[in-house]
Amino acid sequence: MKGNEAVAEAAIRAGADGYFGYPITPQSEILEYLMEAKPHERTGMVVLQAESEVAAINMVYGGAACGKKVMTSSSSPGISLKQEGITYIAGAELPCLIVNVVRGGPGLGTIQPAQSDYFQATKGGGHGDYHLIVLAPSSVQEMADFVELSFELAFKYRNPVMMLSDGAIGQMMEKVWLKPQKERSKTVPEWATTGKPPTRERVIITSLDLDPHRQEKFNEKLVSKYNEIREKEVRFEELSCEDAEYIFVAYGTSARVCMKAIQLARAQGIKAGLLRPITLFPFPSKRLNELSGRARMMVSVEMSAGQMVEDVMLSVNGRIPVYHFGRMGGIVTTPEEVVDFLKSKI
């Protein structure tokens, strides 16, 4: 099954209430699969092809504000269009899932895989002080598994979650184990718009507050929420880090490349390891800082001009050298290139 198809099937099985999307390569299979699978007959899930990414993300806003499990997916240029809606969703504190199957940019760029949207995903993306929770799958299995996890986190924190995949994992075919069908939730959160019964005050979902003092209080509330997420939701995986002198930091497709690079390096007597962030926000800064106490060097391997490397540097805080290595424009780095780069810095 393709990564994109796995997301779609996992969404149906996770009991998602709605999907609103717009075609763009390399993620169109998500919408195609959902249209073909007739989730409306299986679970009552609503699937709609919108007239634009802008409309799709605003449909997500409307559905999320009704307390429903809703999602959208796109790829880089489409995610840029969605940024307006995403900041409103963050500002209105609505839960939802946004899948980004990243391709090379800027502009139309390429349709091949890239990781050049790290800044956009982890630093906010739209205007205003906000963060998404960002999950980075590195396999088809994780693309499937992270759907349900995303909804859990989104509802737990009333915060949008982005699954930051890339064109390689979205298009890749792997064996995947899918969870059994879950029923769609019948419980409605008390903050959702459902029509105002006489027994409660009206619900207003908005990101507007014209009073700067109240707005500041709201911003402070968001900050404390993000801090709680930083405290509780960091997820990462370590490979051969126990004795590693040189640590690659990589997520998604690049992490898979680094797994092979570790083998190649160790065959040449170089003690290499990998820290793979699973959550990019919150970033595993504490763990990287700990590891920097015993490693000699870190290399952030990304298919970008060097974005996550800034967070690695902040985590290490100057204790050891940190480098970036990666290819761009839709080209996937090879393990040999990674090892050669490491050797050039030792």
Binding site: G18, V54, A55, N58, T193, T194, G195, K196, R202, V203
Partner: peptide, 28 residues
């Protein structure tokens, strides 16, 4: 108006309403 509300981004109200009505078809 003393009813449940969603505040849309500029111009996007029909997209919100689309999702609301499809997910809650019994509501006005």
């Amino acid at each position: 108006l003393d009813i449940d509300w969603q505040e849309a981004a500029h111009g996007r109200a029909p997209a919100l309403a689309t999702a609301i009505k499809r997910l809650l078809p019994e509501k006005f």
